[in-house]
């Protein structure tokens, strides 16, 4: 594994403990070293006036990612969007929030459409880069076949999945990315197994890794620097690339709109959402947990897990979720030297 501290510290020489390396900006470093999001010249690829809910993690993640990609490509890029919240809230006629060429075709075909766009660019001798993006439903479920095909052919596309762990656009139903025990409209908190089942799991980043594509990463809206670095890195690579960004959904998760980033942060800090990178089929880096918390601290803030804490004592499923976190921590090496 490479040193993951570099992942969090774009300017290792700088010691600025007030802002640390964790805030969006840093008035003390040169412009070029600052986060894209701190720049007044950022593209605002997804601009104001969109219809996303208050505190939408996906709106945030998409602007973070696309702005970074636009900087990396000098704005020479095209985005393809799967059907879903991101598509609906950005482009209801007669207004669009996008500031770059953008195409929406269908729910399950974003990866393939992007392949087509990339092919057109190649045949026309253009350097224009292509990003496909969608939610977890459009990626891990209905769009999965096209995604896998795009990977396997190593098409020159960066696919970004904004993972909010369910079908939020249709009113919060379960997807294959919904965590166990979570309540959704199709996994109600009823009966002897309330909420989503403890299935075998379908963690698409690892499936992407199994395709041996040049680059795979997970990221979170809670760590902008890491996210931007990964997007920029991905745009420097040709071939199929995949980034999955954890984007909390205040509506679907049952949390205040002001908690979006906090929840994303806690999801990482408890180990439930491992943040890692892989290249050509091998995991190369994992973002270390900074302040480890029990998964309970993360769950209890969300109404979708309220049934786990109902009768004054924790449901046994909390322990099962903790076991999942512990396994992630062990498998991905998520603890730093101090904590290990």
């Amino acid at each position: 594994m490479t040193d993951s501290t570099h992942a969090q510290n774009p300017a290792p020489s700088l010691k600025y403990y007030q802002k640390g390396t964790f805030t969006v900006g840093n008035r003390l470093v040169a412009d070029a070293e600052r986060a894209v999001q701190s720049s007044p010249e950022r593209s605002n690829a997804l601009t104001s006036g969109h219809r996303a809910c208050q505190g939408c993690g996906e709106a945030l993640g998409a602007r973070y990612a696309i702005d970074a990609a636009m900087r990396a490509t000098g704005n020479d890029m095209i985005a393809v969007n799967a059907t879903g919240c991101l598509e609906v809230f950005t482009t209801p006629y007669p207004e669009t929030s996008w500031q770059l060429p953008w195409l929406h075709s269908l729910f399950g075909n974003a990866a393939a459409v992007a392949t087509g766009v990339a092919a057109a660019m190649r045949v026309k001798g253009k350097k224009t880069r292509v990003i496909a993006q969608g939610g977890d439903g459009g990626t891990t479920d209905i769009g999965f076949q096209c995604l896998s095909g795009m990977f396997e052919r190593n098409d020159d596309v960066l696919y970004i999945c904004y993972d909010n762990e369910g079908y939020m656009n249709t009113g919060v139903q379960r997807s294959s990315a919904t965590p166990p025990a979570a309540r959704t409209a199709t996994t109600p908190a009823l009966g002897p197994e309330p909420g989503n089942v403890f299935g075998t799991g379908k963690f698409v980043p690892k499936i992407a890794v199994a395709h041996n594509i040049p680059y795979v990463a997970t990221a979170t809206v809670a760590d902008l620097h890491d996210l931007e670095r990964k997007v920029i890195k991905a745009m420097g690579i040709h071939g199929a690339r995949y980034i999955q960004i954890n984007v909390p959904c205040p509506l679907g998760w049952g949390a205040p709109s002001s908690d979006t980033i906090k929840l994303a942060r806690l999801a990482v800090e408890c180990g439930l959402y491992p943040i890692f990178e892989a290249e050509h089929g091998r995991i190369t880096a994992a973002r270390k947990i900074r302040r480890r918390i029990p998964v309970r601290d993360y769950l209890i803030l969300q109404k979708r897990y309220a049934h786990l804490f109902r009768n004054g004592e924790d449901d046994p499923r909390v322990a099962r979720l903790q076991a999942i976190c512990d396994a992630h921590i062990a498998d991905y090496g998520l603890l730093g030297d101090d904590e290990a």
Binding site: L103, S105, N109, V113, A119
Partner: peptide, 9 residues
């Protein structure tokens, strides 16, 4: 779908 992307481009 690939055709759609390529044609739109």
């Amino acid at each position: 779908s690939v055709a759609i992307g390529a044609s739109a481009a």
